[in-house]
Simulated assay, not measured.
Amino acid sequence: MRSTSMLSSAALAAALVAGSAGAALTQPAGDFPFGLEMTLEAPPKPGSKRIPNIEIDEKGEARVELWCKGGSGQFSVAGNTVIFVPGTIDNRACPPDRAQADDALVAALTAATTWARQGDYVTFSGGETLRFRLNTN
C-alpha cells in the first residue's frame, strides 16, 4: 500500500513539473517583442531587394518571409530560452541559391536555443547567431 501511494505521489509530482514546464514555454517573456516585425541584419541577395523578416504574435505564432520562400512557424519563449518549430513553408519558384539560403535560415532559427534583446535588436543564438532589427516605425 505504501509503495502505491509513493508512486501516486511521484506521478503527481512529475505531472506538476511537466505542467509547469509546459506553461513556462507558452508564457510570454517580459521584454520579448511580440507583435513587432523583425528584419534580419543582412544585405539583400544579388538580384533581389528582399531581406528576411519575422513577426511573432503573443501566442508565439510566427509569419516568416525569407529570401524567397515564406510561411509560418511557432515560437515558444521562456526567460531567455527560445524554441522555433517551422510550420508550412511555401516552396515558391526560387532560384537555387535563394532556396538554399532560405533552408539554411530556417535551420538556424530551429537550432536557436536562446535569445537576447538590446534596444531595437533581437539576437537568436544556438548553432549560429542571427541578429534581427525591430521595425519600430
Rank of each mutant, 00 (worst) to 15 (best):
residue 114 T to C: 02
residue 52 P to I: 01
residue 118 Q to F: 12
residue 18 A to E: 04
residue 90 D to R: 15
residue 98 R to V: 00
residue 11 A to E: 03
residue 75 F to G: 03
residue 4 T to F: 11
residue 78 A to I: 00
residue 73 G to Q: 10
residue 134 L to S: 02
residue 60 G to A: 10
residue 33 P to N: 14
residue 137 N to P: 13
residue 46 P to D: 00
residue 81 T to K: 13
residue 6 M to E: 07
residue 9 S to A: 15
residue 37 E to S: 15
residue 104 A to D: 10
residue 77 V to I: 15
residue 93 A to T: 09
residue 55 E to N: 09
residue 88 T to V: 12
residue 75 F to T: 06
residue 91 N to C: 03
residue 23 A to F: 14
residue 114 T to L: 07
residue 17 V to I: 15
residue 96 P to T: 09
residue 112 A to P: 04
residue 46 P to M: 00
residue 15 A to N: 02
residue 41 E to H: 06
residue 67 W to H: 15
residue 34 F to M: 04
residue 116 A to Y: 10
residue 51 I to G: 03
residue 129 T to C: 00
residue 66 L to Y: 01
residue 121 Y to K: 14
residue 45 K to M: 13
residue 42 A to E: 08
residue 42 A to M: 08
residue 123 T to I: 05
residue 72 S to W: 07
residue 38 M to P: 05
residue 37 E to L: 11
residue 83 I to A: 06
residue 37 E to M: 12
residue 126 G to F: 07
residue 54 I to D: 01
residue 103 D to N: 13
residue 114 T to E: 13
residue 118 Q to V: 14
residue 41 E to Q: 14
residue 4 T to L: 14
residue 117 R to G: 05
residue 25 L to D: 05
residue 26 T to V: 15
residue 41 E to Y: 09
residue 109 L to H: 02
residue 127 G to V: 04
